[in-house]
Design a protein around this nucleic acid. Sequence first.
DNA 1: TGGTGATATAAACATCGTTCAGATTGATGA
DNA 2: TCATCAATCTGAACGATGTTTATATCACCA
Lengths: 205, 205
Amino acid sequence: MSTATRSSYHHGDLKAALIEASEEIIRAEGVEGFTLRKAAKSAGVSPGAPSHHFSGTKGLLTAIAIRTFEKLGAELNTLPSSGIPAQDLRTQGLGYVKFAALHPGLFRLICRVDLIDFKDPNLMQAAFEAMASYEHAAAAYFGYEPPDPQKRIFRPYMASAMATAHGLAHMVIEGRPALLFETPDPIGTFIETALPSILLATWPD
Amino acid sequence: MSTATRSSYHHGDLKAALIEASEEIIRAEGVEGFTLRKAAKSAGVSPGAPSHHFSGTKGLLTAIAIRTFEKLGAELNTLPSSGIPAQDLRTQGLGYVKFAALHPGLFRLICRVDLIDFKDPNLMQAAFEAMASYEHAAAAYFGYEPPDPQKRIFRPYMASAMATAHGLAHMVIEGRPALLFETPDPIGTFIETALPSILLATWPD
DNA sequence: TGGTGATATAAACATCGTTCAGATTGATGA
DNA sequence: TCATCAATCTGAACGATGTTTATATCACCA
């Protein structure tokens, strides 16, 4: 409810207000429920105002995607390390899927290549930094030297590990647990019970 | 180019023509490029005509999603079995990702929960039948008895295997190979070289 | 104090999905 | 055979969307 009532003709910090309002809309109604006009209205501004701060809808959504990758990275990079490679890799995977389950709208956003600008270097950098600890865990488990982060390249082992978590995340936000796994609570129960056993099957000790 | 010129006022088989035209649009321009009006125009019919055959855009796209699952199933279920469980599982996974890479628009469609009706029992049935041989291969590799197909339940092992392929498929159609793996040809080269080694890391002999 | 660039408005435009009254036609039954 | 009816299609309309344009307002600085 960031419908800011403002006194002056100019907003003051419309750019930040638009990002805030848009993220709220996406959290509440998903990417599909988002419209630029809604965001403008929520920020208390006319439909044409956003064009002065973002290059269209795609620019605004890209800014939110960057914030989302930063949130994901903050989540993953602070997960505790046990010293047991298999367990750490599972922890990272679980964290990845949990993030998707807790923020389905935002996670969908960062997968929508048509809605955000993946040529934006800031977006790419945020995406890679988000996966830093994940790559570290994969390197420890599979026994390889992590590549230079500057090169922005993933190893096949990392691709394998990341793909499993990525696929599970998609399956979760696509609502497949409720459809496929007979779990009463589509998010909580699945994550706490079925998901660990799935990851155990994928990366055993 | 199925812009059928018709002589009579009535079309004859508009339902099939709309499905055909829509699938062509999705193949050429992706789900994002699809509009109901385009499909109607391509079928040589007014924008209001489709409503007599489908319950809105979602109904039409659901019909195409069912066809897509049938195509995927026809692909996977005819893949040869080598008798070596690990290799067969990799073959299924490779087939799954290949399908996504060859039909990115259609694959994206069957993942768009907001665009198609996953409560449609025909869609669910088609989705499960498509994965039948995959589940069979997973059961052989992980050593469990495949569950009753009627129950429409996947085992954790199957979820693990499927998730990896599903995640790789998403990564491929999101264009990540070109971004992450330094492959000149984003589809062909990646699939033929990097992908098998990724699947080898996931399901070793 | 004036003026200039940045920022906002309001109105317009094309396009979208959907609805609805009316036109057209194929099929049914007497 | 022919009248009737339900199915099918048109064409115009509606509200909503993203974007552009001319115009209005204001913050800041010379």
